[in-house]
C-alpha cells in the first residue's frame, strides 16, 4: 500500500493508492525515460564511446545512468532551502519527503550535491566529469575491459588538464572530483536497494 514515491524523476511524490503496482511502475518509467534518453545521447557524444562494443556501451549505460543523472540533476536539490524539485516543477521540503518515507538516500543526495556545488565547476568541467563517471572500466559485465580502461584514462587525463588550466592554484579540485566517484557508487547502491524494495513491495 505504498502511497509515496520520493524520486524527483516523478511529477509528484504522491501515488494514487487505487492504482496497481504495475501501472505505478509504468507511469514512473514514462517519467524518467526522457532523462535516460538524454544520458544515452550524452554518451554518444563522448569521443570514443561509439567505438566501444555495443555490449559494453549498454553495460556502461546500465550501470552508470543513475550516477550520471545524480550529477546532471544536482540543480533539483536546493541545499540552502532544503527542498527537492520534482519534474512538475513543484518543490517539496526535506521534512515533507522524510514524512513520506525518504531516508538515508535523500540525506546522502544532499551531502553529495553540496560538496559538488562547492567546487563551482564550469559546464565544460561538469560535462567531462560526467563522462568520467560513465566510462568506468570496473563496471560489471564488460567484455573488453582494456578498451574501456583506455577511454577512461583518456577522459581522466583530459579532465585533469582542463581543471589544471582553469584552476591553476586549485589542483586539489581534481582530487576532490575523483573522490566523488566512490560517493556516486555508494549512492547508486543505496538507490538500487530502494528500487528492489519498491519492486518487491510496490
Amino acid at each position: 500500500n505504498r502511497m509515496h514515491l520520493v524520486c524527483p524523476m516523478n511529477t509528484s511524490p504522491y501515488v494514487d493508492p487505487q492504482k496497481s503496482g504495475h501501472s505505478i511502475w509504468e507511469e514512473f518509467s514514462m517519467s524518467f525515460t526522457p532523462a535516460v534518453r538524454e544520458v544515452v545521447e550524452f554518451a554518444k557524444r563522448i569521443p570514443g564511446f561509439k567505438d566501444l562494443s555495443q555490449h559494453d556501451q549498454v553495460s556502461l549505460l546500465k550501470a552508470g545512468t543513475f550516477e550520471v543523472l545524480v550529477v546532471r540533476f544536482t540543480s533539483l536539490f536546493d541545499v540552502k532551502e532544503r527542498t527537492v524539485t520534482f519534474l512538475s516543477g513543484r518543490k517539496y521540503s526535506v521534512e515533507v519527503l522524510r514524512s513520506m518515507g525518504a531516508g538515508d538516500l535523500l540525506n546522502s543526495m544532499f551531502d553529495f550535491t553540496e560538496k559538488l556545488q562547492a567546487l563551482n565547476l564550469s559546464e565544460e568541467e561538469m560535462s567531462l566529469f560526467t563522462a568520467v563517471v560513465l566510462v568506468s572500466a570496473d563496471r560489471s559485465g564488460l567484455e573488453n575491459v582494456n578498451s574501456v580502461e583506455a577511454l577512461q584514462e583518456t577522459l581522466i587525463r583530459a579532465l585533469r588538464s582542463l581543471i589544471t588550466k582553469n584552476h591553476p592554484n586549485e589542483i586539489a579540485i581534481f582530487t576532490k572530483l575523483l573522490l566523488k566517484l566512490p560517493d556516486l557508487r555508494s549512492l547508486n547502491n543505496m538507490h538500487s536497494e530502494q528500487l528492489l524494495a519498491f519492486k518487491v513491495h510496490p
Binding site: V40, K50, Q57
Partner: peptide
C-alpha cells in the same frame, strides 16, 4: 530481482536510444 536496471526497463530504453548509433556502426 538481482538486476534493478533491467527491472526498471532501463536496458530496453538504453538499447532503443542507442539503436541509431548501433545501426550506423553495423553498416
Amino acid at each position: 530481482f538481482s538486476d534493478p536496471a533491467s527491472n526498471l526497463g532501463l536496458e530496453d530504453i538504453i538499447r532503443k536510444a542507442l539503436m541509431g548509433n548501433m545501426e550506423e556502426k553495423q553498416e
